[in-house]
Computed example of a mutant assay.
Amino acid sequence: MTLITHPSRHPATLIAALLAAAALGPFSAHAADTSAAAQLERWQVQAAAPGSVERGKALFTSKHGGDLSCASCHGTPPTSQGRHASTGKVIEALAPAFNPLRFTDTAKVDKWFARNCKDVLARECTALEKADVLAYLANLKP
């Protein structure tokens, strides 16, 4: 009878996995498959129009029929930690110049825009609205 062990329980496999994780550094948990600039370009192409800093700021700071705006959780301006309006959970800075990991994972960007637009606007954001908000956020500098 042959004993088969799970590969992750083999000491050599475990050591190799730990060394590989250490080599990837602290950013290994982030996909980093894109950038804020690439996301802005994607939405501008989809919208067939450039994003507007002014429209983005207005969309971000205004309440849209409910009690919430983007700024309700992310702050005004969104350059430091915010807090979720309901749970109080800390939200890291949203503006890319203040948090370089923002807008670097396409799946997360799409997920959070879908969720947050539904919470604030009660619908999905258009490509132009996303371009506008990101134009505003990219315009915020230290």
Rank of each mutant, 00 (worst) to 15 (best):
N116V: 08
L3C: 05
K89N: 01
W43Q: 03
H30T: 09
G56I: 04
R115F: 03
F113Q: 04
L134E: 07
A21L: 13
R123F: 03
M1Y: 10
C73S: 09
W112H: 13
C125P: 02
E92A: 11
I4Q: 13
T126N: 04
T106H: 06
A29I: 12
T76P: 00
E124G: 11
L134S: 00
L68P: 04
K118R: 15
L19V: 07
A122R: 14
C125H: 04
V45R: 15
A131I: 11
S8C: 10
T104Y: 05
K130I: 08
H64Y: 12
I15M: 10
S72K: 07
W43E: 02
V109I: 10
A32E: 08
N139P: 07
S62V: 10
R123N: 01
L121G: 02
A138I: 04
I4H: 13
V109E: 02
W112A: 00
K130Q: 13
A20F: 08
A16I: 01
K130A: 06
S35K: 00
K57V: 02
L140I: 05
L14D: 14
A131R: 00
D119R: 03
G88Q: 05
A12D: 07
L137A: 02
A20Q: 15
R83D: 00
E129T: 01
A58W: 13
V120L: 10
L94C: 03
G51Y: 04
G25C: 06
A93F: 10
L59Q: 01
A17M: 09
D67I: 06
A32C: 10
V90H: 12
P100I: 07
A48R: 15
A122M: 04
L140G: 09
A114V: 12
P78L: 00
A23I: 11
G65H: 09
K63G: 07
V53T: 01
L134I: 14
C73R: 10
K108C: 00
A127Y: 05
A71D: 07
V120H: 05
T2W: 11
Q44A: 03
K89G: 09
F98C: 02
L121P: 03
H84E: 06
H6G: 00
R83L: 04
W43I: 02
H30V: 13
M1A: 11
A37H: 12
Q46R: 15
A21Q: 12
D132N: 15
D33Q: 14
P11F: 10
L121R: 09
A114C: 10
A71R: 04
R42G: 01
A38M: 08
A114S: 13
R55T: 05
T13M: 10
A17V: 06
K130G: 03
N99V: 13
Y136D: 04
A32V: 07
G82Q: 06
I91D: 07
A37F: 13
